[in-house]
Nucleic acid binder design. Structure first.
Lengths: 140, 140
DNA sequence: ATCGTAGTTTAGAATTTGTCTAAGCTATTT
DNA sequence: AAATAGCTTAGACAAATTCTAAACTACGAT
């Protein structure tokens, strides 16, 4: 019988399938952590920790694979602010970031709150893929 | 006697001293490679390679120390574009970058060619240290 | 339902980038 | 010239990420 609480995460399953990714146990669990908890910025280690806390056994290799696959699929966006550490942003809309170096904290700036004018033309033979603006801040 | 070709790098010696750094053999050699060859972007490994090519024996630890000391002293600027790799830019004036991901190539955009308007106020208790704009490009 | 297979996951090794340590040098001061 | 604070070094160490090869699993075809 088709009970009332079947398919609790059907939308996630669909999003993965649309991205050409099989909805495996691990991917679904990570998608749930990442995409159903509001806007956030996570590192691989953080996500791994959260998965283990939630009793989901996932290897670190899978965390990395998944983060990159999700990024490719447009479900996440990678933000590089520090050498040797990557943050993944669940907000894939057009926006920029504040980065507090001392605290290692990354914060969104809504897209409309930064406006660039007079962007130069890219070198010939190339096209612009994206513009990242990072406003580096420190405690005053 | 004070021959005509003595003190061939006196300006570099002075710049180091002004920065509170002793003008050692290694630092002078690296300063020469970095600062007397026009504008460039180097990684630690690249600089190490160039130093060895130039018959200057320098350990990698010294390369890292020197790059960071120079950055602190304002002789270089660190640019983070990729996780797990740092570029150091000899152009310390106000400017931004094009980054070609596939080629791993970093290119300057003169400061006047990008203008930001409507920068939002930083979170309270913080002040803006710097704004980095990275225009990510790809082959068209 | 079961099978075959391509796509996934895994543990652990390997790689890469960068830092640390303790001992030996060296620029500078006295 | 000697003392000393600062610098450099080789090599060990550490952290983040990728690789590998074997085991597992989703899923279309039977």
């Amino acid at each position: 019988m088709s009970g009332m609480s079947s398919r609790p995460y059907a939308p996630l399953v669909d999003r993965l399938r649309e991205a050409g990714l099989r909805p495996t146990r691990q991917r679904l669990a990570l998608a749930r952590i990442l995409l159903m908890n509001g806007q956030r910025h996570v590192t691989a280690e953080q996500l791994h920790g959260e998965a283990l806390e939630a009793e989901i056994s996932v290897s670190l290799a899978t965390i990395y694979n998944t983060l990159h696959q999700f990024t490719h699929a447009g479900l996440l966006r990678e933000v590089v602010v520090e050498p040797g550490r990557s943050y993944f942003d669940t907000n894939t809309t057009d926006h920029h970031h504040f980065f507090h170096e001392q605290a290692g904290r990354l914060e969104d700036i809504p897209g409309e709150q930064v406006r660039l004018v007079e962007l130069p033309p890219p070198p010939s033979g190339t096209i612009i893929r994206r513009v990242d603006v990072i406003v580096r801040i420190k405690s005053s």
